[in-house]
Design a binder for these strands. Structure first.
Length: 556
RNA sequence: UGACCUAUGGUGUAAAGGUAACACACCAGUUUUUGGUUCUGGUUUUCUAGGUUCGAAUCCUAGUAGGUCAACCA
């Protein structure tokens, strides 16, 4: 039985459903994810990946991974590898791994075909001359003096271009359409340019390379792509996309456009991300502050959380600016269910339990995850001297401070209730050491004290503590919307986007942590072990904080 | 003085001419050995003006606002 009330479809799904209902694609639908291998994938690409693969999955189709490698100046195999890794990591399997460069010979034949139909010509004009011929959006262009060369001359010239008889920039192949067209892209667009540059896959086999517009649609067509989805700015390319397919009389792929993802407090364009890397504002493409897939992965985001995020943001044709808090919600939602809880004291202050026997150690069994009863328990050693969080003690606490202060009672997580009776200050006025007494009959799980305390705080036993480094990340930009900042965006970098804590104490179980494994530091946030870690020194990345209503309360 | 795309709470996204809803965010309460989690409730919405219609977020017209387009980039 079909659902009587199907979940509402997005506009792309509606299109596919209508096409299918009309019997247009009996073989099923085909989509493709077509990155240019000139940089690393970011979360905007993740949206496109989820859309392309998701559409095919939903309607029983398939998705190709096609590298749009028509510009040898900028493309490298390094990027191909990282892109494949990221798409796989996100959890998608492509039907075929393909390259636009696979089609160079066929595209060349297509070009000859258009020349023979008098629909393309070789132009000797310079780049500047061609730009001048284009006119402006509000005034028609002018025709090139080379526009009416004979078919035979064009064929000979184009063959010579391929044969390498001309230097870069000497000639181009142009489509003969309409220099007065209201769409600039239809004013005799370039099809081929000369580039005596080695290509990462075809080497020196070619010295002419097709432009995006002459490669993309035909590549789609050759692969039988039914739904070629791309971002809004390609909308104006669609008439040209259709024109080439029509004149070549090949399988009609269709292009559909959606609004790209914009995320608050960050930048998304490859150029700007590259700038952050090159100017060493971040430490690389996989810096955990970067919105790249590799950065998010290193930061501790799970593939499921990113897929979920892409699902929740939806898809439409209007410009959007997604609040970072939605991404944070998605990772918290995932990790809350799956991450084991551990204790780590980020800003330590010493606590002495004066009535606890010297030298005694208790191995406490503490639940790993209250959200997952199957996760079991782990052993955490408890002793007379502990570290607690500096912010969990106040000399003169306000009314609703449910933590430690002179005379106040608080529970040590998984251990005992304690009461503070004394503290010592450093010369600078900061707290040096806190003294408290524990209630021996208040042990966690076997509490007969009858006392209920409002607060529970985390701790680490000093003799058992493992020292670690913790890296706290925050939003990259101090402004929400970077869209109109232009190159000025560097002035709005958050100076506190990275904060390194080099003397953090974590419980000993963390010695067994694995790179990338997510844990929750109780009351502090979700963290994961960074690849920079060594056997001697653990380095943790903060993925995201926990929601903190106390902090919010304080800011009021 | 162009063409094309778009306009729904703070942010996104639904509602196929018939009660404007869902998520995030925010606020209040509940639960809790994490000020986490859970659960409950709440605040806030159809760009403007006309028109068609019994009825318009939806259709039409005109405005307004935002975006895109003039790389031998993709």
């Amino acid at each position: 039985m079909e659902d009587s009330k199907p979940k509402s479809l997005n506009f792309l799904e509606e299109i596919v459903q209508e096409n299918l209902a009309a019997g247009q694609y009996p073989q099923g639908i085909f989509t493709r994810f077509p990155p240019e291998p000139n940089g690393y994938l970011h979360i905007g690409h993740a949206k496109s990946i989820c859309l392309n693969f998701g559409l095919a999955q939903k309607f029983g189709g398939k998705t190709n991974l096609r590298f749009d490698d028509t510009n040898p100046m900028t493309e490298e195999t390094e990027y191909v590898e990282s892109i494949k890794k990221d798409v796989s990591w996100l959890g998608f399997t492509w039907a075929n791994e393909l390259y636009a460069s696979n089609y160079f010979e066929q595209l060349y034949e297509f070009a000859l075909e258009l020349i023979k139909k008098s629909l393309a010509y070789v132009d000797d004009s310079s780049a500047e001359e061609i730009a001048a011929q284009k006119g402006t959006p509000t005034s028609a262009g002018t025709e090139s003096p080379f526009r009416n060369r004979s078919v035979d001359e064009n064929i000979a010239l184009f063959q010579d271009m391929r044969a390498g008889k001309y230097p870069d920039g000497a000639k181009v192949l142009r489509a003969k359409i309409d220099m007065a067209h209201s769409n600039m892209h239809m004013r005799d667009p370039l099809m081929y340019r000369i580039r005596h540059v080695a290509h990462h896959r075809t080497g020196n086999a070619w010295c002419i390379y097709p432009m995006y517009d002459f490669a993309h649609g035909q590549s789609d067509s050759m692969e039988g792509i039914t739904h070629s989805i791309c971002t809004l700015e390609f909308d104006v390319h669609r008439p040209l996309y259709d024109w080439f397919i029509d004149k070549l009389a090949i399988f009609a792929s269709h292009q559909y456009e959606f609004a790209r993802l914009n995320l608050s407090h960050t930048v998304m364009s490859k150029r700007k991300l590259l700038q952050l890397v090159n100017e060493k504002i971040v430490h690389g493409w996989d810096d955990p502050r970067m919105p790249t897939i590799s950065g998010l992965r290193r930061r501790g985001f799970t593939a499921a959380s990113i897929r979920n995020f892409c699902d929740r943001i939806g898809v439409a044709k209007r410009d959007n600016l997604i609040d970072l808090s939605l991404l944070e919600f998605c990772i918290r939602e995932d990790l809350n269910k799956s991450a084991d809880r551990v204790m780590a004291v980020l800003d330590p202050v010493k606590l002495v339990i004066t009535n606890y026997p010297d030298g005694q150690v208790e191995d406490l069994a503490i639940e790993n995850n209250p959200e997952d009863l199957d996760s079991g328990k782990r052993i955490v050693p408890f002793s007379k001297e502990l570290y607690i969080e500096r912010e969990d003690f106040m000399v003169d606490p306000p009314k609703k401070f449910f933590r430690l202060g002179p005379g106040l009672l608080v529970r040590l997580k998984g251990a005992y209730i304690i009461q503070c009776d004394h503290f010592e200050l450093n010369p600078d006025g900061s707290v040096k050491e806190i003294h408290a007494q524990y209630l021996p009959n208040s042990k966690s799980g076997q509490d007969t004290s009858g006392i209920h305390v409002k607060g529970t705080i985390h701790w680490v036993s000093i003799p058992h503590a493992v020292e670690a480094e913790v890296r706290l990340f925050d939003r990259l930009l101090i402004v929400e919307d970077a869209s109109e900042l232009g190159d000025d965006f560097l002035k709005f970098i958050n100076p506190d986007s990275l904060q390194v804590l080099d003397k953090v104490y974590v419980e000993p179980s963390l010695r067994e942590a694995e790179i990338g494994e997510a844990v929750q530091f109780i009351r502090k946030g979700y963290y994961c072990l960074d690849p920079d870690s060594t056997a001697e020194r653990l380095v943790f990345n903060r993925t995201v904080t926990l929601k903190d209503t106390w902090a919010k309360e304080q800011n009021k």
